[in-house]
Amino acid sequence: PTPPYLRWAESLHSLLDDQDGINLFRTFLKQEGCADLLDFWFACSGFRKLEPSDANEEKRLKLAKAIYKKYILDNNGIVSRQIKPATKSFIKDCVMKQLIDPAMFDQAQTEIQSMIEENTYPLFLKSDIYLEYT
């Protein structure tokens, strides 16, 4: 069978599907000062998994606000700088009007994912940290 670290080079999803791959990628991103990109990507996935129900409405609202505050509100943040202004105002609107939808971060997540796929993921595959691991 193919060793995990070779599968990580096949696609971003193969990398993000493996806990060791995530850990190594995050260490690399941390060195580059952009671990927030990965944290945000996973936060969006985790948020989407929270099914709307009467029991967790408050939690979903609190979580949506927390994601918004930490990654999107500060325009100088690494995540915020990679998200289109229209996408940011859409999320801001959802939070302000308390219209909490499981898909409200989907577009922002897609934009961050494209940036990772085009930029940090190829750099990771060429990095010392990955080459030493292999």
Binding site: Q19, A43, L63, K65, A66
Partner: peptide, 20 residues
């Protein structure tokens, strides 16, 4: 109430693949 950071960490963890 849990802090925002705690909530975020749990959310991020919930999206990660389970260890084999």
């Amino acid at each position: 109430y849990k802090s925002d950071d705690d909530l975020l960490l749990k959310c991020i963890g919930s999206a990660m693949p389970k260890r084999r």
